[in-house]
Computed example of a mutant assay.
Amino acid sequence: MHTNASFQRRDGQGGLALPVMLIILLVMLISSIYLIKSSNSTTLTASNLAYDSAQSRAVDAGLHAGFKWLSDTAAGNNKALLNDDSADNGYLATLDTTQTTRSSAFWDGKKTVVHEGQSIEYVVHRLCLLSGAYDAVGNTCVQTADPNSGSAHIGVGDSLASDSPQFAETPKVHYVVTARLSGTRGGNVVNQLVVLIGG
């Protein structure tokens, strides 16, 4: 009896495809799980960055309010009001350098403003050791003197070298406006602004 070779059983190849396909499916399943986790963490990171940026912009409203009060007070003949504390306006004429923004004493006399439903606290410090006039005897303040214009009078014995500029007689006193916001997700944002005002 004659048998067709194409119908003969091949014992060496039976059932090999199924385990291979199961291994490939397992690898694809694990890869898809890692891809989903990766996309979720990327989404969460982007969401947190957007939240931090929004909180930072919101706290700037406190910086703006403190700066506006400071510049309005310094205008005209009101500059003498900056020699003493003004708790109603969140202003302190001195800064205790042992305090940081995490210290509760740093925020003594703070003022609160509401911006887009969020409460923002700010405080303005003059960078001086003592209250009173910035140039009073015994008082030390952080100051910057601007260079005079080219038309300034050069006195006898003064240097004309390009690296020896002539400075203005009235320096600018430094002030720091600090604002903070306690976020709804438990995060805190603190921003600072340095302002220079002529003495």
Rank of each mutant, 00 (worst) to 15 (best):
M1W: 07
T3C: 15
T3V: 13
N4Y: 12
N4C: 08
S6K: 11
F7P: 10
R9F: 15
R9N: 08
D11S: 11
G12W: 09
G12A: 12
G12C: 06
Q13E: 14
G14Y: 12
L16M: 07
A17E: 13
A17P: 09
L18V: 11
P19Q: 04
I24D: 10
L25H: 10
L25Y: 09
L26S: 09
V27A: 06
M28D: 11
L29S: 08
S32W: 14
S32I: 12
S32Q: 11
S38C: 13
S41K: 09
S41C: 08
T42K: 13
L44I: 07
A46K: 04
N48C: 14
N48W: 05
N48L: 05
N48I: 06
L49T: 11
A50L: 10
D52H: 11
D52Y: 03
Q55E: 09
S56L: 12
R57C: 12
H64W: 03
H64G: 01
H64N: 15
A65S: 03
G66F: 00
K68V: 12
W69K: 03
L70Y: 01
L70D: 01
S71E: 09
A74G: 05
A74L: 09
A75C: 12
A75S: 14
N83A: 13
N83G: 03
D85I: 06
D88A: 10
L92P: 00
A93S: 14
T94N: 02
L95S: 03
L95V: 06
D96Q: 04
D96L: 08
D96A: 11
T97I: 12
T100W: 01
S103Q: 09
S104I: 10
W107D: 02
D108S: 08
K110M: 12
V113I: 15
V113S: 02
E116M: 08
Q118D: 04
S119H: 08
E121V: 03
Y122N: 01
V123M: 02
H125Q: 03
H125F: 03
R126I: 01
L129Q: 13
L129S: 04
L130P: 00
S131D: 09
G132C: 03
G132K: 00
Y134Q: 04
V137Q: 00
G138F: 00
G138D: 01
T144I: 11
A145P: 03
D146K: 10
D146P: 08
P147T: 07
N148S: 08
S151I: 13
A152D: 14
H153K: 12
I154Q: 07
G155W: 07
V156I: 15
D158H: 15
D158E: 11
S159Y: 06
L160V: 12
Q166F: 05
Q166P: 12
F167L: 10
A168F: 02
T170P: 00
P171H: 02
H174E: 12
Y175M: 02
V177F: 00
T178N: 02
T178P: 00
A179T: 02
R180P: 01
L181Y: 03
L181P: 02
T184M: 06
R185N: 09
G187V: 08
G187F: 06
N188H: 12
V190F: 01
N191Y: 00
L193E: 00
V194E: 04
V195C: 07
G198N: 14
G198L: 09
G199A: 14
G199R: 06
